[in-house]
């Protein structure tokens, strides 16, 4: 076996920490992301996921599409902080945080949180905390395209 093959087998390039926190334009596969998280540990016994998708109504108005803008660098930094704090504070085994940017069609995936733990209770808690925290501290902005024009959305819970 060549040195290159040994290195690839030991540490697949697609499976490092960077893949567990991403801001990307392209859509993602929930199955592939679940597989990525499950591979991290055989101790995992419960996985909670949150998937945010683009809906066609906002504050009683029709929405035709959404564009997400992000602050490159700071957005990734905040998502890394969320992953690290979720693992540390909630005692979960692994957390994946993924957010798309660019133009999103109604019905498409926007954001995915996966929290994997030994048991379901901490997985649910970490997952809910991570999506709430993401909305509070991550520099990502949403432009809704409506029949009346484009609106930068500024509310969060």
């Amino acid at each position: 076996m060549s040195l290159e093959q040994v290195t690839k087998a030991d540490r697949p390039a697609t499976d490092d920490d960077a893949m567990l926190v991403r801001v990307q334009r392209e859509d993602f596969s929930i199955d592939e992301e679940l597989t990525r998280v499950r591979r991290r540990s055989k101790r995992i016994g419960g996985i909670a996921t949150f998937l945010g998708t683009a809906r066609d109504r906002s504050k009683g108005k029709d929405v035709d599409g959404i564009t997400f803008e992000h602050y490159e660098g700071m957005a990734q930094k905040k998502l890394r902080e969320i992953r690290e704090r979720a693992i540390k504070d909630f005692g979960v085994i692994e957390v994946l945080v993924l957010h798309r940017y660019g133009e999103i069609t109604i019905g498409e995936n926007i954001v995915l949180i996966i929290a994997a733990a030994e048991h379901r209770a901490e997985a649910f808690r970490a997952c809910q905390w991570a999506i709430d925290e993401l909305k509070q501290i991550t520099p990502i902005w949403k432009l809704e395209h409506t029949p009346e024009g484009e609106v930068w959305v500024e509310e969060h819970p």
Binding site: Y71, Q136, K142
Partner: peptide, 14 residues
């Protein structure tokens, strides 16, 4: 220094 102006973040409603 890297300086930016950050409008309200928009995660959408809960």
């Amino acid at each position: 220094d890297e300086i930016a102006l950050l409008p309200p973040f928009a995660g959408g409603n809960r």
